[in-house]
């Protein structure tokens, strides 16, 4: 709990600052707080949050998945391919895509557990491999949905109206569902307990009779599955995907969100709420820059600097309290 207080505080500070800076004299209102902006922001948090939870699943086992962005690309290209080029009904196409992504995760898990390869190596090669394969597969064509999935697009662009100007975006509900199920899995189930135990000390967990191999594979399967879900949401949101750029760098956003939210890279530590807050912070920063800055040239620099400052302050505060004790 203590670990997420820092990020929650940082989130509040940045949100307040953004609100303050977003005062629009002509409409006499804070544009940051407009229903339109909030629903856009929450929608992005929904989509990127799913990716961060995906990343967190393998990070708690002490592993890493660098292929998330490329799996997003696989889902983003395969979904239009099935829907538009082959006329597969949406309710069959999406499960098929998710199944394919889960299979990618299974492949990762088997290489890591069965062959004993390092997660970094396996997933780094995955990052290159899947994007390359998708580029060849699509012939570098833009894969557009072309109006074949207007009902399914509700998942990404739908709103549940709350007030006249604000509706809860559907991806946020997807994230809420994923987060609740993940949280229950992590904290209430035996498998979740075992997952964290093996993340902290794989050998001791194995000596306690935990099926460490099977659980590690499961973590990679779930990671890729969720990355695939994220990929589907993204392509449903923007209507088309281009294999060469779709989901580029998203693994880093996902990992940053998870780590910011208190998931320790050494494994065995983390809370779903923290991961969601981490994803919030990443998206909030982008929103802030777009709402406040004259151009977005400095965007990456600002995101990097704020995260670094946040981490430094967090560590400083923790040390201060440790010394006081």
């Amino acid at each position: 709990m203590k670990k997420i207080l820092g990020i929650a505080a940082l989130l509040v500070v940045i949100a307040l600052t953004t609100t303050w800076l977003s005062w629009d004299a002509s409409s006499q209102s804070y544009t940051f707080l407009s229903g339109y902006n909030l629903q856009n922001l929450l929608q992005r948090i929904g989509m990127f949050g799913v990716l961060s939870i995906a990343a967190a699943f393998v990070i708690v086992t002490g592993g890493i998945d660098l292929s998330i962005g490329s799996v997003v690309c696989v889902a983003g290209c395969m979904l239009p391919w099935l829907l538009r080029d082959h006329g597969v009904p949406p309710l069959i196409a999406m499960p098929l895509v998710l199944l394919l992504c889960a299979a990618i995760g299974l492949w990762h898990g088997l290489l890591i557990v069965g062959l004993g390869l390092q997660p970094f190596v396996v997933t780094l090669c995955g990052l290159l491999l899947y994007r390359g394969v998708m580029r060849a597969f699509t012939g570098d064509q833009t894969m557009g949905l072309g109006g074949t999935a207007d009902e399914l697009r509700w998942l990404a662009t739908g709103r549940i109206p709350i007030t006249e100007s604000f509706g809860l975006p559907a991806p946020l509900l997807v994230l809420a569902l994923v987060a609740v199920v993940t949280s229950i899995f992590w904290t209430r189930t035996v498998a979740g307990r075992h997952l964290f135990a093996l993340g902290r000390n794989e050998e001791a967990a194995r000596f306690a009779g935990v099926a460490t191999g099977r659980l590690t594979v499961l973590a990679y399967v779930l990671c890729s599955l969720l990355a695939g879900l994220g990929g589907c949401l993204f392509v449903l949101d923007v209507n088309s995907a281009q294999a060469s750029s779709f989901g580029n760098f998203y693994e880093l956003y996902a990992i940053a969100g998870a780590v910011l939210g208190g998931v320790a890279l050494r494994g065995g530590e983390g809370m779903v709420l923290g991961v969601v807050l981490g994803a919030c912070l990443m998206q909030l920063l982008q929103n802030t820059i777009n709402l406040v800055a004259d151009s977005n040239q400095l965007e990456f620099a600002v995101v990097g600097a704020v995260i670094l400052a946040g981490a430094a302050v967090d560590e400083g505060v923790r040390r201060f309290f440790r010394r006081r004790r």
Partner: peptide, 21 residues
């Protein structure tokens, strides 16, 4: 600029609409 990242392009457009009415 959006570095040809489609979701980012959409987000940027949305944020511009938010910022200036």
């Amino acid at each position: 600029t959006d570095q040809t990242d489609h979701p980012k392009c959409k987000a940027t457009a949305q944020d511009a609409l938010t910022r200036w009415n």
